[in-house]
Write a protein that binds this DNA or RNA. Sequence first.
DNA 1: GTTGACTTTTTGAGTACCCAAAACAATAAT
DNA 2: ATTATTGTTTTGGGTACTCAAAAAGTCAAC
Lengths: 243, 243
Amino acid sequence: MGDLKKIHISLTKPDREMLKAIYRLSKGGGFAHTGALADAIGLSPGTVTTTIKRLAERDLLEHQPYRGVELTTAGRRAAVSAIRRHRIVERFLSDMLGYAWNEADRLAGAFEHELPQEVEERMFVAMDRPATCPHGFPIPDPDVSHIPEMPTLYALEPGAEAVVAVPGSTDPEVVKFLDAMGLRPGVRVLIKEKHPFDGPLVMRVAGQDRTIGEKVASQIFVRVLSDSDDGSNGSGKLKEQPA
Amino acid sequence: MGDLKKIHISLTKPDREMLKAIYRLSKGGGFAHTGALADAIGLSPGTVTTTIKRLAERDLLEHQPYRGVELTTAGRRAAVSAIRRHRIVERFLSDMLGYAWNEADRLAGAFEHELPQEVEERMFVAMDRPATCPHGFPIPDPDVSHIPEMPTLYALEPGAEAVVAVPGSTDPEVVKFLDAMGLRPGVRVLIKEKHPFDGPLVMRVAGQDRTIGEKVASQIFVRVLSDSDDGSNGSGKLKEQPA
DNA sequence: GTTGACTTTTTGAGTACCCAAAACAATAAT
DNA sequence: ATTATTGTTTTGGGTACTCAAAAAGTCAAC
């Protein structure tokens, strides 16, 4: 409703990181707690508290002392815009400079904050408006306050088809394992069986049957394919979908 | 060519800007003065003094109170490396994102400071190691402490051939005029006559004879061409020159 | 319901950064 | 040579950012 005027808020690096972390930790709804934020960003709890208070004064979040924080709509919009920028920069590093998808995450964090929003937008169009970051997560539209949730691989039922996305924070050992299985960002999978009681999952990846356990399958996010979808979003580009 | 271990000094944004400004203001040799630095960077004189003292403690420059500052070799190397980064980022904005050469300067300054040196290097190779920035000034090698001087257009004698370079700080009106004359960065000129007593300069630009006054000609820098040179450095790319 | 464990906030301390204005040094003018 | 001008440095004041450690609050266990 009241986006009276879209005054583009200027945020500092710690502010942005904070908003992103809060968004991540509270996307299920509910509060993000100081301690969790502290080790998500790598700051001391005291620093988190003061940063939070600064942001609360700008109405980007609500702080219930000793209880936690919750983003306001403006805060959520700012967080999503920070995430958008991060993912665009990741794509740039991967598409235009040839970095591997797991390196892009690290490097993007280093300079995304100072990047003029204007340049971010040009990067985006220069890459033909990619739909996802190199990890396979969607690049949200500007000025939205929500990014669609993605289920994990293990949440799928047999018969479902999906495109995989692997978080940047994934343990390198796990990444190596996934790579050997062909489970890279953007790859298309078809679920064949799921054994009961948290049992393993059988699926078809790149023409081969693969079995993975619940532990790993729950760490992989997916975009479920509708019938008309061809899965090209993950690694390629996509401008608009036919109605 | 050993990119072995360069103890890369970590400099903050104001520090880098300061070093760049000092280099610029003292490249003829001699001192840079506080006041000149203050309005070159847009800081108050007091701030300049404190910044200078911080840099002096790191042995990047020598400060003679009330007299001025002079870069040490380490300081000059740091300054050149900052300039190198600036010019690479400018080229990136111009070549890969399509910004005009006079816009690139402004935007580069905004985010060059946080750019990991690693990414800077990749940009450089991704653009096939360009020889100059979009303004026509050379991109120096890493770890050198000096950038070759360029004469101004007005310093040339009849018969000389050169490639033009236009500073980013040039007055927009002048830029418009130069553009109408075809005097863009990278363009090749041949000097035909120079009238005495600071009189006008006649030259051949893109197949046409042009005459400009001393005032303007003294603001344009040039790279003088040797006989074998073809002048393609300015707007195009160049890896290495045949011996 | 008091105790103890845990978390969060506050406090104290330090750096980097900035400015305006007072104090100071060097130079130019009389 | 004293004064005035100019330029530089210092001082005092402010914000943002960080931490470690002290104080305060919450909650669960006894």
